[in-house]
Design a protein around this nucleic acid. Structure first.
Length: 424
RNA sequence: GGAGGGGUGUCCGAGUGGUUUAAGGUGAUUGACUCGAAAUCAAUUGUGCAGAAAUGCACCGGGGGUUCAAAUCCUCUCCCCUCCGCCA
């Protein structure tokens, strides 16, 4: 959520900054400010009347105890009370209308973010290793997975539906090995491991920005206001909802494994084969709570921590800065890490590392206090995948494949897999 | 799922309709005393909104209601605890 004070002070600047995302929010922002004016006006009038009511309420028992007559003052209080009720209703209504719009306005891009329309305008800022070169015709991970009997989307289609997978045998083992390798590596870097609930309530989904705008992307459970988590970002960030964090604990760094559930509405026909786009996938997520002034450094560190596991796995990747038109709703700045995938002869997103400034913290009311006498202020939240597990497994299968159709297990996973390769 | 008991500030805890400015304690900060500390004494000590400020308003798990007036009464809801049932 954008700071209403910023909108009051300089709405033009906000409209201008959001235009770089490729959408014009002038009408919405004008609406917010109009509701804001009406609300503040009603608030002033209500508070004046409440003050009068409070004063009289203190007099009434005094008059009563000294045996005086209160019928006249009661009469006056009665009409005052109904006026206050009306104003309060008005304020509530305006507040709701203002909030409704405020919640669907995206975050303001950081000034350092390159202006652009879509993914074609994302500059590559660094890369690691060259794309894998084969002296034979490499296969896709879904071909290899089927041949080796480790990936089985057909059975998953029978049991559940499209965009689900069974991993079997060494495939299941590899998925689990990668999860453990990620968590172990991140906890060594100082992240606190958390195992979150995979179901969250509406407030949590609103706190991180998935709701109200993107409800169709989520799986909603029947018989309650519950949602399957689209990412561990949601439960982890909301751990501290409505809390004031002690400054000496900042920055807080968490890592968490979760299954992630996405409806993938609107992506019919895209990435229909393999592990790239599933309704359910595994991910290890990194989440940080930081002081505003440390957030830029923390984003670099978080991105480097996500890159570390790819380096250890010796998978070729590159890092791009998302341009204004390609950034997610809540983010102010995002680095995408893209792993090299032989099957598409190019790079695919495997991690998205973002700084959300105070956008999520304002929605979720997450603050910190520098010292006991200071005012509580909003923290900055950051998160990034560290990494998407299914895509990592796909990248390992494709990049480490051998001519005979076997897959060499990366050395970094030696402690997690007994075999050095997966053969048919 | 059934029965009962709870939710008040950092924490403990009082408060069943008005003179409550949420008592009292505890913790914290500052000052006095002290060579220093402890003890003692004193002051300060929640959050948000509006306002240039003075100040005002709101908040006792959350929503709604009754009333001139609600921490207190009604109602819905969330959470916690105890017992029973079921259960990986």
């Amino acid at each position: 959520m954008i700071d209403i004070k910023l909108l009051r002070n300089d709405p033009q600047a906000v409209v201008g900054a959001l235009k770089n995302r490729g959408a014009d929010y002038k009408k919405e922002i004008d609406g917010i400010l109009e509701f804001d004016r009406l609300r503040l006006d009603a608030l002033q009038r209500a508070e004046t009347k409440k003050h009068e009511q409070n004063k009289a309420s203190k007099e009434i028992p005094k008059i009563k105890s000294s045996g005086g007559d209160t019928s006249e003052i009661m009469e006056r209080m009665k009409s005052l009370s109904s006026e206050i009720k009306q104003l309060d209703d008005e304020i509530r209504r305006l507040d709701a209308m203002q909030n409704e719009i405020l919640l669907v306005i995206p975050n303001i891009p950081d000034p350092s973010v390159p202006v652009g329309a879509d993914e074609n305008d994302n500059p590559v800022i660094r890369s690691f290793m060259e794309p894998t070169v084969f002296d034979f015709q490499p296969k896709s991970h879904w071909e290899l997975g089927a041949e080796l009997g480790i990936l089985d989307p057909e059975t998953a289609a029978k049991v559940t539906g499209a965009r689900f997978h069974f991993y079997k045998g060494q495939g299941a083992r590899l998925e689990r090995a990668v999860i453990n390798f990620f968590l172990d590596t991140h906890t060594k870097e100082g992240y606190t491991e958390v195992f979150p609930p995979f179901i969250v309530n509406r407030q949590s989904m609103t706190g991180t920005g998935q709701l109200p705008k993107f409800e169709e992307d989520a799986f909603k459970l029947e018989g309650g206001d519950y949602f399957l988590v689209p990412t561990a970002e949601v439960p982890i960030t909301n751990m501290h909802r409505n809390e004031i964090l002690p400054a000496d604990r900042l920055p807080l760094s968490y890592c968490a494994y979760s299954a992630c559930f996405r409806a993938e509405a609107g992506s019919a026909g895209r990435d229909t084969r393999g592990l790239i786009r599933q309704h359910q996938f595994n991910k290890v997520e990194l989440v940080k709570f930081s002081r505003p002034e440390d957030a830029a450094d923390q984003l670099e560190k978080l991105t480097a921590d996500a890159e570390r596991v790819l380096r250890l796995l010796e998978l070729p990747y590159r890092v791009v800065t998302l341009c204004t038109g390609d950034m997610g709703f809540s983010s102010a700045k995002t680095y995408d890490i893209e792993v090299y995938m032989p099957s598409c002869n190019g790079y695919r997103e495997i991690s998205s590392c973002s700084c959300f400034t105070d956008f999520q913290a304002r929605r979720a009311n997450i603050r910190y206090k520098e010292s006991i006498n200071d005012k509580a202020q909003l923290v900055y939240t950051l998160n990034g995948s560290g990494l998407a597990v299914g895509r990592t497994v796909a990248a390992i299968i494709e990049n480490f494949q051998n001519q005979d159709g076997s897959i060499t297990i990366p050395k970094a996973l030696a402690g997690y897999m007994e075999e050095e390769s997966i053969d048919s």
